[in-house]
């Protein structure tokens, strides 16, 4: 079983394409953006449905509150801005007006993680998944490539309930087949193996795949599972894989605190304690640099995944 690169594209463009398609399928879909239409790739939606698009200017709190209000009247609002301004800046607005009020708002966040690059730590959001997954009722999705982000956007539009959809800036390998179904809360086993389970999401899925190939050269059969939905977590798929391999590694472009690894560690601690390692940012802010330089500098490169896998294997009884 191999993954094949179709092309190189940014996940945010997958969002833009998905949003346009969602708008065509359902005239209740509306979009709001806080002065980042080009960055979020929302241009096509704006052009096709100008009457269903709201340019908010740089007022994110107003955007979230207004989105909550638009649901009262039957609309399905998608808000778009960077991950930092989608979460940390508006946490209380999301908590009260969206989550506690049970509103069908889709919070769509681009430029998440270190791979935002040169803009540096102010914009490199690494705590968003943690903040969002703590809110009762919130669904948290981190797709891995262009095709999956597009499919996720369409699934989110049909899903009744609040969603945080996280994607990124750089062009990365697009390998998910276009017709591959996206099911919220269902993890995808990409590579089967018996020695170690690697659970990854977002840009780290491809990095983990490269690590799987390296491990294979050394005779290690790693299983790669794309856990695109952090919440609700696909407990069944994770436990099935972990029980088979008895050894676990997680990889994500997020703080270790609050991320996918933490959710899986919590699951395993309760159901199946196993040796586990984490590839994630370890309680640090980011800095300026190119995406790949940053992933390497913060221990999220392919080498780091291979080393972490070996540490986990060594701990396996």
């Amino acid at each position: 079983m191999e993954l094949k690169i179709i092309n190189y594209q940014d996940t945010r463009s997958g969002f833009g394409a998905g949003l346009l398609e969602a708008g065509k399928r359902n005239d209740k879909v509306v979009a709001l953006c806080a002065d980042l239409v080009g960055s979020l790739k929302m241009d096509a939606f704006v052009k096709e449905f100008p009457e269903r698009f709201f340019q908010m200017g740089i007022s994110e709190a107003q955007m979230i509150g207004m989105a909550a209000g638009l649901t009262i009247g039957g609309y399905i609002p998608f808000t778009g801005t960077f991950a930092n301004f989608s979460t940390g800046r508006v946490y209380d607005q999301i908590r009260q007006s969206v989550a506690y009020s049970g509103k069908n708002v889709k919070i769509c966040a681009s430029h998440a993680g270190l791979t935002l690059g040169e803009d540096g730590a102010t914009h490199q959001m690494l705590e968003d998944v943690g903040m969002m997954k703590m809110l009762p009722g919130m669904t948290v999705i981190v797709p891995c490539d262009y095709n999956q982000t597009k499919a996720a956007t369409l699934a989110v539009a049909e899903h009744q309930g609040l969603v945080y959809l996280r994607f990124g800036r750089p062009k990365v390998p697009n390998f998910t087949p276009e017709d591959h179904p996206f099911i919220i809360g269902k993890a995808d086993v990409l590579i089967e193996g018996t020695d170690i389970s690697i659970f990854a999401n977002g840009h780290m899925v491809w990095k983990a795949y490269e690590a799987v190939l390296r491990l294979r050269e050394e005779g290690v059969g790693a299983e790669l599972v794309n856990v695109h939905t952090v919440k609700p977590l696909d407990e069944e798929a994770i436990l099935r894989s972990a029980r088979k391999t008895a050894c676990v590694l997680t990889a994500e472009e997020h703080q270790m605190n609050g991320g996918l690894g933490e959710s899986i560690a919590s699951l395993l601690a309760q159901k199946q304690p196993l040796p586990m390692e984490f590839v994630a940012v370890k309680d640090l802010f980011g800095q300026s640099g190119t995406p790949d330089e940053l992933l390497d500098a913060y221990g999220l490169g392919v080498d780091d995944i291979v080393k972490a896998a070996k540490r986990a294997l060594k701990r396996k009884a």
């Binding site: 979230i64 909550a68 209000g69 638009l70 009020s101």
Partner: peptide
Amino acid sequence: RIASGSLGQGLSVATGAAWAKKLNGD
């Protein structure tokens, strides 16, 4: 129709509901 208590959010919500009415021709 909305939770409130943490202050400052109701006017934003009202703008959204007002837009929904306009979109609905209500």
